[in-house]
């Protein structure tokens, strides 16, 4: 394991009832990598992503994060999750709070920031994604694209070491996909480690440092975007790409 390894995943399995959703996943994620995970629906790619912050508890195998085994029962799960940003398909903003409160509640309650500090930081991030005028709005007053940008900022406000994106643009109207991908590209350029489950192949080709193709709970191919998209090796990847492009 080299120094800049962030995640080391060994023999990761997850089953629901009798169905095996993840079947012995082995891989490493290095700091600064942008890994895009593709695959047919039901292939286990979301489950894989969600198991990295233990929203899904693995049934077998180990996940090591910054040298620490996170499947250990003694681990302080809440502290660990603070370092992992998560962006959901359906945004999951807190509807009873203003945007500013959505962004600052974590830093204030969990990181011990003062309200002033937290709000200052939140406003800087809001400037960065072009939504400073929405600080006092409520989530229901925002468009889908705006909500997702806010959701990304909410995670960033916790100053995470890695960001997980679970189909961040799948619930958006087509004309709003671009603005969210722009923010993600920006993050990638800034050196953020990112794992992204998406169907946006153009984005994957442009931004990813690695693309993982998961099918039937296994990593079938794991390579640079050029190799994956231009020279797919396996029949399954070929037929998958043929269907979606």
């Amino acid at each position: 394991m080299s120094d800049n390894t962030l995640f080391e995943i060994k023999g990761l399995c997850k089953s629901f009832g009798s169905g095996l959703v993840l079947d012995h996943i082995d891989t490493e994620i290095k700091t600064g990598e942008v890994v895009v995970i593709i695959g047919p629906s039901g292939s286990g790619k979301s489950t894989f992503l969600r198991s990295l912050n233990l929203l899904e508890m693995p049934t077998d195998g180990t996940i090591t994060f910054e040298g620490q085994n996170i499947t250990d029962k003694k681990l302080n799960l809440d502290k660990y999750r603070q370092k992992i940003g998560m962006v959901f398909q359906h945004f999951n903003l807190f509807p009873h709070m203003t945007i500013l409160r959505n962004l600052t509640i974590g830093p204030i309650k969990l990181l011990g920031m003062s309200q002033k500090e937290a709000e200052k930081m939140a406003m800087q991030y809001l400037e960065r994604v072009g939504l400073p005028d929405k600080a006092s709005a409520y989530p229901s007053q925002l468009s889908g694209g705006q909500k997702q940008r806010i959701a990304i900022v909410r995670s960033l406000c916790m100053n995470p070491d890695v960001m997980l994106f679970d189909e961040p643009t799948s619930a958006l109207d087509p004309e709003m996909v671009g603005e969210v991908l722009e923010v993600m590209k920006d993050l990638a350029k800034g050196g953020m480690t990112m794992l992204i489950v998406t169907h946006e192949m153009g984005f994957a080709r442009e931004v990813a440092s690695r693309v993982m193709f998961i099918d039937d709970g296994r990593i079938v191919e794991d390579n640079t975007p050029q190799q994956i998209f231009d020279h797919p090796q396996s029949e399954r990847l070929k037929s998958f790409l043929a269907k979606i492009i």
């Binding site: 809440d78 903003l93 309650k109």
Partner: peptide, 27 residues
């Protein structure tokens, strides 16, 4: 309350009781 609210709270690092208190109960 949609389970996504729970997941969002937990993934920010809130414990189960904190998620209940700050996020679920008010709604």
């Amino acid at each position: 309350i949609d389970n996504g609210q729970f997941e969002a709270g937990r993934s920010l690092g809130f414990s189960y009781p904190e998620t209940m208190y700050y996020i679920i109960m008010p709604q």
